[in-house]
Amino acid sequence: MNVLVLFVTLWIVQGALALAMCMCVYRMVLGPRAQDRILALDALYVSAMLQLLAFGVRTGSTVYFETALIIGMLGFVATVALAKFLMRGEVIE
């Protein structure tokens, strides 16, 4: 019973997160301006991080949390660098 509850929930959760990632990709491809694409990339990073958390619960192992943490850090650095580039035209002055 508990295994059934967990696995049905995890199917729904991973499906919802995959749909969210598809929506972010849609906005990233169609986004009218550069800032929309960067925002969609940031949201895509967050969705991918949550997808890895759900995958960690599904496999019952904690290795995936480190991966999720790395993806979160990379998303932060990428978004800050891209926003800096939009603002000033160069990343490191």
Binding site: L17, A20, M23, S47, L50
Partner: peptide
Amino acid sequence: AGLTLIGAFGL
């Protein structure tokens, strides 16, 4: 997951 989906829908 539902809140993340709503956020992406808003995006």
